[in-house]
Simulated assay, not measured.
Amino acid sequence: MPSVHLADRGVVRVSGEDAKTFLDNLITCDLGRVSLHTARFGALLTPQGKILFDFIVFQAPDEIGGGYYLDVLKVFAPDLAKRLGFYKLRAKVTVEDMSDAMAVVAGWVDPKPDDEVGLVSEDPRLPELGWRAIIAAQDAAEFAGEEAQHYHVRRIALGVPEGGRDFLFGDAFPHEALMDQLHGVDFDKGCYVGQEVVSRMQHRGTARTRIVPAVYEGGFAADVGVEVTAGDKALGTTGTGINGRGLIMIRLDRATDALAAGHVIRAGGIPVTLEKPSWIGFPFPGEVATGTEAGHG
């Protein structure tokens, strides 16, 4: 079956009788929507509303100690555990970096594996991404049927960004990283760190910068962090790219103006065409110029 061991992902566990309330008061997603079979995409933000860490939250059954397991970029797992520890105060919770003992795997096409494998869920961001699971590290080889690059080819083709790859932590708002489109922010939940800024951006529609998918001319892709331009104006920077497709973070208004003026958008000097996935609901560059809006929220 098409599945991969995402060796660059780590796991942080938050357990204890106050674990749910503790996490719910900190992160963007509503833990009331997390269950034993349903994970949730979320993030921990700065008080100014920028993403410090993005992750997928799984709930563990009581027979293995309960609590929540956060699937996060492995190099940032120690920092996430430390940051959560800062907020602990008198809460009855334990925060542990479990990255050495646990592994993250993902798969698509075939149905998700049974719960006996570990903590398993459909990918909460987008159904087309398939399923995702946290399992014992010693079992990861069983799911290493494909190279991890195959997963990222699929992710990029679907237009789904990841923190630490397509944007810098501490530098992007959830809307810029498409978390509002990928079910990473529950706008009807209570307060959490950075909530006021994110809610204001949602209600006022002030997200001018977004990550969008792009198709590169010639089948190549620019390196990460290269300038995106149109005419003599800078629009933004590139994220990850593979096989002629990539993700770029750009100013939507500048891209719209450039296209209306007939300018070619270039990433690292390579012409690119912006491509709107069906799941994106905000007005896309080119649509505003023609007065149309497509997609769904």
Rank of each mutant, 00 (worst) to 15 (best):
residue 240 T to A: 15
residue 194 G to D: 04
residue 262 G to M: 12
residue 34 V to P: 07
residue 66 G to L: 05
residue 287 E to D: 13
residue 151 Y to I: 09
residue 200 R to H: 11
residue 286 G to Q: 08
residue 180 D to V: 01
residue 3 S to Q: 15
residue 256 T to R: 12
residue 204 R to Q: 13
residue 182 L to V: 01
residue 12 V to N: 07
residue 53 F to T: 11
residue 256 T to E: 15
residue 2 P to A: 10
residue 98 M to Y: 08
residue 281 G to I: 14
residue 115 D to H: 06
residue 142 E to R: 15
residue 76 F to M: 13
residue 125 R to G: 04
residue 176 E to Q: 11
residue 222 A to I: 10
residue 50 K to C: 05
residue 64 I to M: 10
residue 290 T to V: 12
residue 200 R to V: 08
residue 1 M to Q: 12
residue 71 D to M: 03
residue 11 V to N: 09
residue 266 R to I: 02
residue 30 D to Y: 02
residue 125 R to M: 07
residue 236 G to Y: 07
residue 86 F to E: 08
residue 5 H to I: 07
residue 202 Q to H: 13
residue 155 R to S: 10
residue 212 V to S: 01
residue 18 D to R: 11
residue 167 F to H: 09
residue 45 L to R: 10
residue 22 F to R: 09
residue 125 R to V: 02
residue 279 W to E: 04
residue 103 A to F: 07
residue 109 V to A: 13
residue 77 A to T: 06
residue 44 L to A: 13
residue 232 D to N: 05
residue 289 A to C: 11
residue 8 D to S: 15
residue 103 A to E: 07
residue 9 R to M: 13
residue 177 A to W: 00
residue 87 Y to C: 05
residue 111 P to N: 12
residue 126 L to A: 01
residue 1 M to E: 12
residue 40 R to T: 01
residue 152 H to P: 07
residue 77 A to V: 07
residue 49 G to Q: 05
